[in-house]
């Protein structure tokens, strides 16, 4: 009887101490979070699990937005310089394609989703975030308006090259920019970027009317 009582007592102490240990939640490490994410997704079409391996820039910008603290200025500069160095300018020196094709690219939100056929041409989905041609009223507001983009800025070599770089890898100018790296990440082809450039800069484009 006495032994039984003692055992019960002992058991309750063990349970109580377990409960005490368990009352403090532990902050998850980045490695734990990445592991939990990797265990949560499956590979479909072009969307492989390695998309969850963060680049140095993705990691730094995730922390900055989670904590609300700006990047360290030196880190920012280094990330932007690296992004600018990634930009490939057109070998033939021609920057502007066909604005009509550019408009179709700006309208299309396809590409790189697990539901898309791998290798199918992607769109730029510009209207998701930007006003572009005013005639399209269904546009988002995450990015600034691009209405009259070329009319306001002209098409000097500096403007043309800047615009190309911005579309190729927007992190070159703002390390944690929301805009995807259309050239650097292989979302759009060089020819497609030329068409989008024409939509923005060609004086004949409706954007510049």
């Amino acid at each position: 009887m006495k032994t039984k009582l003692l055992l019960t007592l002992l058991a309750s102490i063990v349970i109580a101490s377990c409960a005490t240990v368990a009352t403090s939640p532990k902050a998850p490490s980045d490695a734990e979070v990445t592991a939990a994410l990797k265990a949560s997704f499956k590979e479909t079409a072009s969307a492989k699990i390695d998309r969850l391996d963060q680049s140095e820039l993705q990691r730094a910008c995730s922390v900055a937005s989670e904590t609300g603290k700006d990047l360290d200025p030196k880190v920012r500069e280094a990330l932007q310089a690296k992004s600018l160095a990634s930009v490939k300018y057109p070998a033939d020196g021609k920057y502007l394609g066909d604005w009509k094709r550019g408009e179709a690219i700006a309208q299309s939100g396809r590409g790189l989703q697990f539901s898309d056929a791998p290798g199918a041409a992607a769109g730029g989905n510009c209207y998701a975030c930007h006003q572009v041609d005013k005639a399209e009223i269904s546009h988002g507001n995450i990015g600034p308006t691009l209405w009259n983009y070329g009319k306001l800025r002209g098409n000097s070599e500096a403007i043309v090259k800047y615009t190309w770089a911005r579309v190729w890898n927007s992190h070159a100018f703002n390390a944690c920019a929301n805009m995807p790296r259309f050239g650097d990440a292989g979302i759009l082809t060089e020819a497609q970027i030329k068409d989008v450039m024409a939509l923005l800069l060609d004086p004949e484009s409706p954007v510049n009317k």
Binding site: P28, D30, E32, V33, A36, L37, A47, R51, L52, D53, Q54, L57, Q58, R59, C61, S62, V63, S65, E66, L112, Y127, A128, C129, I137, S138, H139, G140, N141, I142, H171, N178, P180, R181, A185, G186, I187
Partner: peptide, 30 residues
């Protein structure tokens, strides 16, 4: 963990949940 996942940027578009759902008054299209 959910909080960290919400701010986790990844993939070819560098998007996190927070990219679209962390600022006031944002829209995708309409």
């Amino acid at each position: 963990r959910g909080e960290k996942m919400f701010f986790f940027k990844g993939g070819p578009y560098d998007f996190a949940c927070a990219t679209c759902h962390g600022v006031d008054g944002q829209r995708i299209r309409l």
